[in-house]
Design a protein around this nucleic acid. Structure first.
Lengths: 137, 137
DNA sequence: TTTTTTGTTGATACTCATTCCTATCTGGGA
DNA sequence: TCCCAGATAGGAATGAGTATCAACAAAAAA
């Protein structure tokens, strides 16, 4: 992603454009492994020694509030960040501990339909997500 | 659950029967809210002042290894314990932050069937679970 | 341009769930 | 009864994440 596109992404989220935000957002987009804030920090600190850990945590949270990235908790309780906004599931590999995206519109639709047709007693469903655990082949 | 049943539960898991284990297992079974180790500790400490927090954490983990209880991570990253062994989903109430059980054999079967018929490229599915977020009505 | 306001950053201290350490204790087999 | 592997108590250590706050920068007002 080039400079202009990054700048647009950030300002169109209603945020001021800063060097730190650019660097952090770019690092997240380049990562395919749904990094934690700490992982983003270590990928970014070499080229940006002045950048502090707290800023990475805060900035990523700012992106979440601006709807630029998604946040979720993995099976170990760590906060993970994902620049993909469309709804999708995650594959947890029990061997490598890596997390992959799994997009399947048909499955999403099937689940959505199921919970529209089958109400849960005393509960109003807002969001359903799948946790898929297994092994990379 | 009476004394004999509790004792059986613990020894049949291959564990030594101790007062602490009985008290902790009983408190967990009486709880309907999938408590954290800390919550179990505070429910138990009044009637058992000598019991330490470390013991509660370790004992609950022992139960998990002995397949007497299930452990899962909630959306805030806290470890929750559940004495219900059959596979089931959880309902997360965004208002009260409470977690309820949701058993639905038909849904479980539907998902199982789906992933048997629809392989994921390069991934071997072992376990699928649902995270259902919404509001208690 | 200067001043004011507003938002951002870095450094550090802090919280809090969980794990680790170790001295001490105990249930149950010999 | 005696013994010891396993269990426990108590507290220190860990580590992810948050709060605080002074310094700073960029935009808005004067």
């Amino acid at each position: 992603m080039d400079f202009q596109k990054l700048k647009n992404k950030i300002t169109s989220g209603g945020l001021k454009f800063t060097h730190q935000r650019m660097v952090i957002y770019e690092a997240l987009c380049r990562s395919e492994d749904h990094p934690t804030a700490d992982m983003v920090f270590s990928r970014v600190k070499e080229a940006n020694p002045g950048l502090s850990k707290g800023t990475v945590y805060k900035t990523l949270d700012t992106f979440v509030h601006a709807n630029m990235v998604q946040k979720f908790t993995d099976d170990l309780g760590l906060m993970r960040f994902d620049p993909v906004l469309e709804s999708h599931s995650h594959l947890y590999c029990s061997k490598s501990k890596k997390i992959r995206d799994y997009k399947n519109a048909a499955l999403e639709k099937m689940l959505k339909k199921y919970f529209e047709e089958n109400q849960i007693d005393g509960f109003e469903v807002e969001e359903v997500s799948l946790v898929i655990k297994g092994k990379t082949k």
